[in-house]
Design a protein around this nucleic acid. Structure first.
Length: 213
DNA sequence: AAGACTTACAACCGCCCCGCG
DNA sequence: TCGCGGGGCGGTTGTAAGTCT
């Protein structure tokens, strides 16, 4: 049986106080993000290490953007969710200054409802009401002017990494509201190469905004 | 004015992955 | 090679704030 990450009876739970926040910020500014397990004691916090990490990552990091999501951010979330599913950390990775928790909350509270109101199933981007056409072969032409059909063929780019969601790759939705769901994804940018053993390994690093191009 | 209901989001929980000894 | 432990992730819950009746 695995040990719990901390002695629960000796830790605070619930909302963080300003003093706790300040202690955490001070400690990380001095020592950096190190071992979360030992951080609480070192920083003088009666918190679980995981709780400290979460507080820092989701709320206290200086580079975080606070406030409402812009329209282009929302668009990007919808597109990325279509490609990646509930992989919030991956989605957040493409939204500078946003966290996985924030994106997840935003999806659950705003986007999901918005899509449902438009008659779209947020889980698979299919129309809930009607007009769902399934084809086996579709061409990539015909995207001039307003978007009235969406191809999920792009999911194939992610088949190996993401699995099941890509199974919808041949579904076509017609008569969608103008959501601008162009799911084009740019090929990964090769940022560096590593030599491991005798083989050369390419480390692909995605440009966070490339999906918009 | 107050209670009920809804919304938004911070925080927690438990599982999984991966590095390390 | 294997088991352990830390960190990360996604799902869920708790609760404060806002809105409705």
């Amino acid at each position: 049986m695995r040990k719990p990450c901390c002695e629960k009876k000796e830790t605070n739970k619930g909302a963080w106080s300003k003093l706790e926040d300040q202690k955490l910020i001070d400690y990380i500014q001095k020592h950096g993000e190190g071992c979360w397990r030992s951080l609480p004691q070192a920083a003088g916090l009666l918190r679980c290490g995981k709780s400290c990490r979460l507080r820092w990552v989701n709320y206290l990091r200086p580079e975080l953007k606070r406030g409402n999501f812009a329209e282009d951010e929302e668009d990007l979330i919808i597109k990325l969710h279509a490609l990646l599913g509930n992989r919030w950390s991956l989605i957040a990775g493409r939204l500078p200054g946003r966290t996985d928790n924030e994106v997840k909350n935003y999806w659950n509270t705003h986007v999901k409802r918005k899509l449902l109101q438009m008659g779209i199933d947020p889980n698979n981007r299919r129309l809930v009401l009607s007009s769902v056409i399934t084809k086996t072969n579709m061409s990539n032409e015909s995207n001039s002017g307003a978007v009235d059909s969406v191809s999920y063929n792009n999911n194939q780019h992610l088949n190996s990494a993401c699995g099941s969601e890509a199974e919808e790759s041949n579904t076509v939705i017609s008569s969608l509201p103008d959501l601008n769901l162009d799911l084009t994804i740019a090929p990964p940018v090769i940022e560096e190469r590593q030599i491991i053993g005798s083989s050369q390994v390419e480390c692909a690093v995605y440009n966070p905004t490339s999906v918009l191009n």
